[in-house]
């Protein structure tokens, strides 16, 4: 269930690093805990963001949750499909439910994030 090639943040975001860019989304655990997502407030393209900063909000039928970025850099792309289809965050959190692409300011930050197996252990320790 937990993709091996991604890195994970303690707030349950994931990133996929390709070159100097990282695609960001929320984990399957996060979408399951949130419940049905009805609306997402996406970060702005060109926004400068700092690791662990709140960059958006996710509204579900249950509650509002903050979206954090695990890495610093500049937002270069956001998934506008989510504006009309927020349910993609539930149905395909690691695929079409991606949220944003960030141009990394400091690629070394990635090393501090959890690997898939570390995240799996982290989830086990949470329950």
């Amino acid at each position: 269930m937990i993709p091996q090639d991604l890195r994970y943040h303690k707030e349950h975001e994931w990133i996929r690093v390709e070159g100097q860019q990282a695609t960001l989304g929320i984990s399957d655990f996060a979408q399951d805990a949130l419940g049905d997502v009805v609306y997402i407030d996406l970060p702005k393209v060109e926004a400068a963001v700092t690791a662990n900063q709140e960059i958006g909000e996710i509204e579900s039928t249950k509650a509002t949750s903050s979206l954090y970025t695990p890495v610093s850099g500049t937002v270069v792309k956001v998934n506008t499909e989510l504006q009309d289809h927020p349910e993609l965050l539930n149905t395909d959190p690691y695929g079409r439910g991606w949220i944003a692409v960030i141009e990394l300011a400091d690629p070394k930050e990635v090393e501090a994030l959890m690997t898939a197996s570390e995240y799996e252990q982290f989830l086990a320790s949470q329950s």
């Binding site: 419940g35 049905d36 009805v38 579900s60 039928t61 249950k62 539930n90």
Partner: peptide
């Protein structure tokens, strides 16, 4: 029970 399969599906 807050939900079984999902709030929107049950709605």
């Amino acid at each position: 029970p807050v939900q079984y399969v999902g709030v929107l599906a049950e709605y």
